[in-house]
Nucleic acid binder design. Structure first.
Lengths: 220, 220
DNA sequence: TGATGAATTCAACAAATGTTGAAAATTATC
DNA sequence: GATAATTTTCAACATTTGTTGAATTCATCA
């Protein structure tokens, strides 16, 4: 047995199974027994390791949030450094998106599931709010700082709204619903991650420009 | 008793309560007893009127879909008529969005709930697909026709992707998560429907132009 | 009024759910 | 190798869940 890799510890197997199932069916659509079965462990083990169901969900959600935040922040800092503190809109938006793309491209199934889960939580009204706030809003605020600095004359309200549209476009793509594939009769594949971001970035940047840079009168 | 309005029939009360609760918590987050209590009826009545739970959800979802589709199609037909068959991008996007805005502005709580529900279903991976497809894709295909006609030289794939980003921006806004309000410290209010669409339309149009009209080289 | 059919309630079912405590097995520590 | 601590299993609990059939009320109309 030359390259035997020991099986992941059970606590990790639980998190991975939970990650996938929560991403597919949401919090209420998943049972602890379903997770336990998928992970190949006893139900009681979930409670032993992670406490009640909601706590398990939080652990799943937080597990990769910090990693993603750090990657995004680094990308932004790099963009700022390489531009003498004045990154372009493209650079800012790219710093927000490209790390996600990188994680998706690693082929790690876990990241795909996790990102779909984020998409799910972000558009869930009651549930997501608190968790999205705690785990992502500090970083988002930092990006909006950068946007404000890039467009000092823009109405802040417009920057926030543009960010909301941006966030929506990203969220739906992360959710991996498969709908665009069906709609386009297979022409667009959500798995084609490179194309997605190559197109999303200019789409979003153009929107920001229109709303926040060009003259107000042009909008109406 | 001068203007006494009789209470809505119970079957309608059930649909309204279900609409609100499903919009807030999703399919699995809602119990039939919760709906029954909110509607002030017996649990067994849900089964009598609508059959099993999934069927009830479908009835709720389909109830307003046709109305919305008709309004949107009329708006598109009008735009085409008033422009000699060559509606502008703004007109097409507006025809897609303004009817939604109109329904939101009627003040009918039911429409707000329903639209939030659509936002929820649209970004749910397993659940939504079939229902979104059946109830909305025919109309969406019609809009994409119009877009293709407006931009005959555009790569169809890009039109579909731009639509996906468009749909995401709309979906997140419909979902009414309250997150943008918190993020902007109250500067943006999701209830301010007029502002939302006045900004979403130019944002989306600019994105479409960038991806589908301007030269390919500009994108990268 | 009385009879027919629809609407509504009542009571209960079997199955599934989150959670827990105690026992057993495994691992670590000395 | 004995002891302690950690991990895992077993069995079960009290609720809650979707669903159903029989009984009751209500409305319609001859």
């Amino acid at each position: 047995m030359p390259d035997y890799t020991p099986p992941a510890p059970k606590s990790e197997r639980i998190l991975n199974a939970a990650e996938e199932l929560f991403a597919l069916h949401g919090f209420d659509g998943v049972t602890l027994r379903g997770i336990a079965t998928a992970a190949g462990v006893d139900v009681a083990l979930l409670n032993y390791h992670f406490g009640v169901k909601k706590k398990l969900f939080e652990v799943v959600f937080m597990r990769r949030a910090e990693i993603l935040n750090e990657a995004r922040l680094n990308a932004l800092l790099e963009a700022e450094a390489s531009s003498g503190g004045r990154p372009s809109l493209e650079q800012i938006v790219s710093a927000f998106l490209r790390p996600i793309q990188r994680f998706q491209l690693t082929g790690d199934e876990g990241w795909r599931n996790y990102l779909a889960l984020v998409g799910w939580v972000n558009s869930s009204s009651v549930w997501g709010e608190e968790m999205m706030h705690k785990s992502f809003d500090p970083l988002v605020a930092r990006f909006i700082e950068a946007l404000k600095k890039n467009m000092p004359d823009a109405d802040p309200q417009r920057i926030y709204w543009a960010y909301q549209f941006f966030s929506g476009a990203l969220t739906l793509t992360l959710a991996q619903t498969g709908r665009i594939g069906r709609l386009s009769d297979g022409l667009c594949r959500e798995s084609d991650v490179e194309t997605v971001y190559d197109l999303m970035i200019p789409f979003v940047v153009a929107g920001f420009r229109k709303l926040c840079v060009e003259s107000v009168e042009d909008v109406f």
